[in-house]
């Protein structure tokens, strides 16, 4: 559906003051009004914004035009103000269209262009589902308590992987991102590594004198043959990577 998203932009507007190309932050006829005008109505968002993650790089004194303040993400606000506000009325909502986010987060844009990605470019998700752009903790969805809880963003949709289990994989205590790249990856299931390196970066041990050269023991079990076959979670081995209700070694 990515192609359809592009097509939507094609049919979105037409200039009345001569030919003007479409651009991500363009709102026809609108000009920049400054943060204070926004704060008059959106005091709840503006109150904590200075101490937010975005508040680190957005300050009233910074002069880079169009690169700081509310309108660097929401577009010029004069027509929105003149119309008395209103959701989506002459104002851009990056929660719907991520283009405003991609203007600064170049590497994230590139990640979403990789073969395996969350369906944000396809319009099935948006940045705000996982991030609070105005709040103090960028790593949590908007609303709720002020600090993110572990794996909270992912658990909204990925219930099977985050539900409780009798025997849990302690890696989940490090967070989902210890194994997965949340925006996009070259690897299936958006893994940060697709091979046993993913597991062995934690599950390593000093090999003792009883271990022959070239042999890899994990715990008390020689794993060399298994590792030569493929990944730790394949071929009926540790298939219950997120937790098991049966087996303490997460084999099923």
């Amino acid at each position: 559906m990515a192609v359809m998203g592009v097509a939507t932009a094609l049919v979105s507007s037409c200039s009345s003051v001569g030919p003007v190309a479409e651009s991500p932050l363009r709102i026809e006829g609108a000009t920049y009004v400054g943060n204070q005008a926004c704060a008059e109505c959106h005091a709840d968002l503006c109150r904590t914004f200075p101490v937010s993650a975005h508040g680190r790089i957005h300050g009233a004194g910074l002069k880079f035009s169009g690169g700081s303040g509310c309108e660097s993400c929401h577009g010029p606000g004069s027509r929105h103000v003149a119309a008395g506000g209103g959701r989506g009325k002459f104002i851009l909502n990056p929660g719907v269209d991520p283009e405003a986010c991609f203007r600064c987060h170049l590497e994230v844009h590139a990640q979403f262009d990789l073969p395996q990605h969350h369906p944000l470019p396809e319009g099935k998700m948006n940045c705000v589902q996982c991030h609070d752009p105005h709040g103090r903790d960028i790593m949590k969805p908007a609303g709720g308590l002020a600090m993110a809880r572990l794996n909270q963003s992912c658990a909204q949709c990925h219930r099977p992987e985050t539900k409780p289990a009798v025997f849990e994989h302690p890696a989940l205590r490090e967070g989902c991102l210890i194994c997965h790249e949340p925006h996009g990856s070259v690897n299936l299931k958006m893994l940060v590594e697709p091979d046993p390196n993913l597991c062995l970066k934690c599950h390593a041990q000093e090999q003792g004198p009883g271990v022959r050269p070239g042999e890899i023991f994990i715990g008390k079990v020689p794993h060399t043959a298994f590792l030569r076959q493929g990944t730790c979670w394949s071929a009926g081995c540790h298939t219950a990577v997120h937790g098991s209700n049966m087996d303490r070694l997460l084999r099923y």
């Binding site: 041990q205 000093e206 090999q207 003792g208 008390k220």
Partner: peptide, 13 residues
């Protein structure tokens, strides 16, 4: 004891 692995800290990754 320690014949398979002496244990201790290892640089894992």
């Amino acid at each position: 004891p320690g014949f398979t692995s002496p244990g201790g800290w290892v640089f894992a990754g």
